[in-house]
C-alpha cells in the first residue's frame, strides 16, 4: 500500500486528546478491577490499607474444596465444548442454505433465528426453564447444554451466513465440473474454506457460553453449575455471602479458565486465514 494513502494519526486535535483521556479512564477502571480481584484473592487480610497484610494461596485451596471447583471447572469446560460442537454442526449447514438459497418462507426462518439473539435471555429463559423442569430435566447437565444452544445456534448461523456468502459460488460449480459429488464439494472444498469462519464463530460461542449467566442459572443446580453461576451463588448465599476473598479466588480461576480456553482455541485459528489472503490478492491485480 502506498504511503500516501495512510493518514497520519491526528495528534494535535483537542477532540482526539479527549478520546484518549476517555480510553485511559476506561483502562484504569479495567485494570483496577482485574488487579484488585487478583490481589484480593492472594491477600491474607485486606481492610483499610492500600495492600493486604501478607500474601497466601490458601484462599485457592479453600475455595477449591469448599465449592468443589474441580467439578465446576469440569462442568464449565465440558458444557462449553459440547455447546460449541453442537452449534457448529447444527448452525453451519443452516447458514449454508440461508447464504446460497432463496426459498419461500426464508424471511420467516431468518426471523426465527434472529429472535433468540435479540430477546433478553430471561424472556425465553423462564418459560424454557419451566419446560425443562416439567420434563424432569431441571438441574441436569442436559438442560444446561440445551438452554445454551438457544442463543448459540442462531449466533453461529448469523455469523456464518455472511462468511459463506463471500465465498464465490463459482468455486462450488468448478468443483462439480471437476467431477466432485455434493458430499465431496462439502468435505474437500467448502469445509477447508469455512474453517477460519467456523473457528471464529466457535470461539465466540465458547466465550459466550462460559460467560452466559442467566440461562444456565435458571436450570442448573449442584453438580451442573458452571463457574459464573457458582460465583454468583457464592456472592448471594444466604447470610451476606461467602468471604470476599474466596469469591475473588474463584473469579481468578474463572478468568484463568477462560483465558486458557481462548489461548487453546486461538492456536488453531491463525494458520488458516486463507480467504482473507485470497481476497487481498484479488484486490492487487
Amino acid at each position: 500500500m502506498a504511503a500516501t494513502t495512510l493518514e497520519r494519526p491526528v495528534a494535535a486535535r483537542p477532540s482526539t486528546w479527549f478520546v484518549w483521556a476517555g480510553m485511559a479512564a476506561f483502562g484504569v477502571f479495567l485494570l483496577g478491577i482485574l488487579v484488585a480481584v487478583v490481589v484480593d484473592s492472594f491477600g491474607r487480610q485486606w481492610f483499610d490499607t492500600w495492600f493486604p497484610d501478607g500474601l497466601t494461596v490458601e484462599r485457592y485451596t479453600e475455595a477449591w474444596d469448599r465449592f468443589s471447583l474441580g467439578e465446576v471447572v469440569g462442568v464449565t469446560v465440558g458444557v462449553a465444548v459440547l455447546v460449541v460442537v453442537i452449534s457448529v454442526l447444527v448452525g453451519v449447514p443452516a447458514a449454508y442454505v440461508l447464504a446460497r438459497r432463496d426459498f419461500p418462507g426464508k424471511r420467516v426462518v431468518m426471523l426465527l433465528f434472529l429472535l433468540p439473539v435479540l430477546m433478553p435471555p430471561i424472556t425465553y429463559g423462564i418459560p424454557l426453564a419451566t419446560v425443562m423442569y416439567s420434563f424432569g430435566l431441571g438441574r441436569t447437565l442436559t438442560a444446561v447444554v440445551l438452554v445454551n444452544l438457544v442463543p448459540s445456534v442462531p449466533f453461529v448461523i448469523l455469523t456464518m451466513t455472511p462468511f459463506i456468502e463471500q465465498i464465490n459460488p463459482a468455486i462450488e460449480s468448478a468443483a462439480r465440473m471437476c467431477g466432485a459429488r455434493t458430499r465431496q464439494v462439502f468435505t474437500r472444498i467448502l469445509a477447508p474454506l469455512l474453517v477460519p469462519g467456523i473457528l471464529a464463530a466457535g470461539i465466540l460461542v465458547l466465550v459466550r457460553t462460559v460467560g452466559l449467566f442467566e440461562l444456565t442459572f435458571l436450570v442448573s443446580g449442584p453438580g451442573s453449575d458452571t463457574l459464573v453461576v457458582a460465583i454468583y451463588r457464592g456472592m448471594t448465599a444466604a447470610g451476606g455471602g461467602e468471604a470476599r476473598q474466596l469469591i475473588s479466588a474463584m473469579s481468578v480461576i474463572y478468568t484463568a479458565t477462560m483465558l486458557v480456553m481462548l489461548v487453546v482455541a486461538l492456536r488453531f485459528v491463525n494458520p488458516t486465514q486463507l480467504v482473507a489472503q485470497v481476497k487481498e490478492a484479488r484486490d492487487d491485480d
Partner: peptide
C-alpha cells in the same frame, strides 16, 4: 445428468480456483 457426470471441463470468468 448432474454436472459432475457429464465429463465437461469449464473455465469461469472469476477463475473459481480453490483458494486453499
Amino acid at each position: 445428468l448432474p454436472p459432475e457426470r457429464r465429463g465437461f471441463g469449464m473455465v469461469f470468468q472469476s477463475y473459481a480456483l480453490f483458494p486453499h
